[in-house]
Design a protein around this nucleic acid. Structure first.
Lengths: 267, 267
DNA sequence: CAGTGGTCTAGACCACACT
DNA sequence: GTGTGGTCTAGACCACTGC
């Protein structure tokens, strides 16, 4: 399973396990107990033992289960919480993070109005233009970690703020995990699309990378965004990953930035 | 000073301080000990007691100094390290983070080549076009937290990769902390500009925000970037802050994105 | 070797939420 | 009140660095 021996170390009456077992073989890598616990918790998350929004067992319960001290479990959970996989709530418990209840909705959307307003914008109007199944072209397949020709879903939609179109985006999703996704499902849904992915398909998006360029609106995109051809637009290519860094979505967006901007924090 | 009572709690023989002192007054906010320690360490950083690259006292020394346990200091340092203000090195000590020795040079520059190469790019060729002092226009002043008419420095430069210009940027710096900065100083310098700011002016940039838009190259910028007028460019406005979130630099860049892209991680 | 950060434990107590 | 996470402590031991 994991890369190291699990933290059981048989019947120690005295405290610290810390032993790595396996003197032979080739496990030169040392990984601290709390990292191993972190991996075990992650496995439970991947396996769906606890679903988004669920509360996971208390630190003491987990400590008992893994035969370590509560402090060690705590450190593991600390890191998972820092990665936004778990959410701690004092007095209540620790919960599996979700795109739904999370009051920072649209966590991955960095486009925001230039001044004032802040996030009073609300969820924007969605308009699905297209939703079809196809066989993955080579490039799409590569970015999604699939083979050319594997089934994928493509969705095209426009997001608008106050009636003004602002985002045109194409999504590609691997066909297998998203079997059964239809334009009706998407259209009927309110709230973040990633929340729908969680509830309907058990796919939780955890992390994403974006590559941004400036491009000119072409004949196809210009009318959809209600701008003149040649207007500079932000091109945003996003690859979103589930647990374990498995890519699960490719998204290519064109953002109008005349009244909005892409906001980023550098640390 | 801080918002809470310092963590001394007089002569406790028995362990935990945790008491907030001050039963009277109006300090409803409770802040944990390690946060107070964090503030104290931050104050020392701001005051320049330890400079970028310096090693700070060991956890035990700090624990003695602040009259708390080593674990509490550890947690404070953990957070400061997570914020990239400190860097821990096992066996050696804890160091004040710096833009110089940090092997992730150009920490705030997100533009990178489209494929391969990765960071083999190196530090790019710098070409300073202009460096002048002026009185801050209203907008610049506002963004830098100054008053209109306060002295500021403006620097304009072009960065190129392999001889191809890629970035045209204007910098505005508050005149007072950067007194004595000349075009010669800048031109003579190798390495990150933020490293120079540390060594020459004691100003360490800690955090920055960027607002990104897509714009068209105009008559002024096009020739400097060697592109046709109207070419889509990334407009990147950055406000960089020192300790305590004090804004210390405004930077407005135009990025060519024909062979490079702006990379971002979403968590 | 001594000194530093890194891990692990165990127990005490505080703050918060629900019942 | 009970149970949860949050803080603080104290001490033991491990891993890395450099003398």
């Amino acid at each position: 399973m994991s890369q190291n021996t699990p933290p059981h170390s048989a019947g120690n009456t005295t405290p610290a396990p810390q032993t790595d077992g396996l003197t032979g073989g080739g496990t030169p890598a040392f990984s601290p107990l709390y990292q191993q616990i972190k991996s075990l918790i992650l496995q439970s998350l991947q396996a769906g033992e606890w679903k988004p929004g669920d509360t996971i067992p208390s630190e003491f319960d987990l400590a008992a289960r893994f035969k370590v001290s509560q402090g060690t479990v705590r450190k593991a959970i600390d890191e998972l919480a820092a990665d936004n996989l778990l959410v701690r709530r004092q007095g209540k418990g620790t919960f599996v993070a979700t795109h739904a209840e999370q009051h920072i909705q649209y966590r991955f959307l960095r486009l925001q109005p230039d001044e004032g307003d802040q996030r009073s914008e609300g969820p924007a109007e969605r308009n699905i233009i297209e939703c079809r199944r196809l066989r993955a072209p080579a490039e799409i397949a590569r970015l999604l970690g699939l083979r050319s020709g594997d089934p994928v879903l493509q969705v095209r939609r426009v997001l608008a703020f106050h009636g003004v179109p602002a985002i045109l985006e194409d999504l590609w999703l691997p066909g297998v995990p998203f079997k059964g996704l239809t334009v009706e499902t998407l259209a009927a849904d309110r709230g973040p699309m990633y929340a729908l992915f969680e509830t309907q398909f058990g796919v939780r998006m955890v992390r994403a990378e974006e590559k941004i360029k400036a491009v000119a609106a072409d004949a196809e995109s210009a009318p959809l965004l209600d701008v003149a051809q040649g207007t500079p637009l932000l091109s945003v290519e996003r690859i979103a990953h589930t647990y374990n860094d498995v890519p699960m979505e490719l998204r290519r967006g064109l953002y109008r930035t005349d009244t909005h901007h892409y906001r980023n924090e550098l640390n």
